[in-house]
Design a protein around this nucleic acid. Structure first.
Lengths: 201, 201
DNA sequence: AGCTTTATATAGCGTTCATTACATAAATCT
DNA sequence: AGATTTATGTAATGAACGCTATATAAAGCT
């Protein structure tokens, strides 16, 4: 059973998971620095003491938001790289899926992890996104290593640069078609890259 | 002669061009929101009234900084696209040059125009970088149109996504080698793209 | 019922933000 | 010399920032 017996004190008057989901929307749209604790409290319908009782700090909430992202939208990375096909096909799937997910839908565009702490001077927040970004890159590296073990690190870095380009461009309102065109171009370049340097094919 | 006759009132006690160069360094390193007027004043060695007398506002100074960038570091775009060679070669030169210029050198990395207002909520500052970004893209479009007039717009957007990827990755401390690898991969994808859709070759 | 524990609301903390009143200093113009 | 014009230094403005001290309310435990 997942439901725990009720804890000791006064029960929380709001849904913490829903509040985190609300915060995720705000951080995705405006970035970490662009959302104030006052904004968050208003959107969640709670006052500062409730906020700090539940999340500890703004950065603490942000850590929970990023963890949630990995389990929701961020899963497309794992899914695109699943299966037994060739690595070059999986990378193309990853890039194309990112193009579609990053393209603006309403107030949301780009990747929360890659871009929400850009230009922020908050070291704690940057560490959170930086860690998650490198975990994503490591996943790509492990996947690529199936076919190209000796160049997996380098190739994963190249893929991440492409992902960052699509995320940034999406936040600048690039169309889904533009992002898709780029994804195909990058995938084509990736195929050429591994074909030309076939030392580890 | 370029020196104008002295204006009426008390002369400025600091070098305005040097102050703009100082501001450019700070904006490049920390982004628009990451630099306060107090920071700028300290670095320039002036007090707020002098600052506002010279630049009007923080955004006014930023506009002068961005204009200066176009005439200094930003010139690599024009230079890479100069000459009579094939468009595919010029695009590869552009991407490779960007890779080298964007790679971290001291406190500076990435592109000031592409990334300094990312996640900023200051509409004026975003408008300044957005305008300059689109002017750069238009230059790339005009260049590409020499060989591929019907697809120049689309292809220029793809190139800009690659530039944004390199700038963002450079700001995340990507190595010069990583950026160069990506530039070559993107250039290879670009060649393949225009070769496959050779409707306007 | 009373104690303990946790969450809430009200109100305010100190800091930093971009910007500005005000008086004064340094230049040109008449 | 005196008026005009522009720049400077001192000091402060109102607003927003992340966060918290204090008191009270709502639950479980004994």
């Amino acid at each position: 059973m997942t439901t725990k017996t009720s804890p000791r004190g006064r029960p929380r008057s709001f849904d913490k998971d829903a509040a985190i989901a609300t915060a995720q929307q705000l951080f995705h749209e405006h970035g970490y620095d662009g959302v104030s604790v006052a904004n968050l409290g208003t959107a969640m319908g709670i006052k500062p003491p409730s906020f700090y009782s539940a999340f500890g700090s703004k950065a603490g909430l942000f850590a929970e938001v990023i963890a949630r992202y990995a389990d929701t939208e961020g899963r497309f990375t794992t899914e695109a790289l699943a299966g037994d096909g060739r690595v070059v096909d999986g990378i193309e799937r990853l890039l194309l899926t990112a193009a579609h997910i990053y393209a603006r839908q309403g107030m949301k565009s780009g990747c929360l992890v890659l871009d929400s702490t850009r230009n922020s001077s908050d070291i704690e927040a940057r560490t959170i996104t930086g860690g998650m970004t490198d975990r994503s890159r490591a996943m790509v590296e492990d996947y690529i290593a199936r076919d190209y073990p000796d160049r997996a690190r380098t190739l994963s870095e190249m893929v991440m640069i492409a992902m960052k380009g699509m995320s940034s461009a999406a936040r600048d309102n690039a169309s889904a078609a533009s992002l898709e065109n780029f994804a195909l171009m990058a995938a084509s370049g990736f195929r050429h890259e591994v074909a030309q340097n076939a030392r580890n094919a």
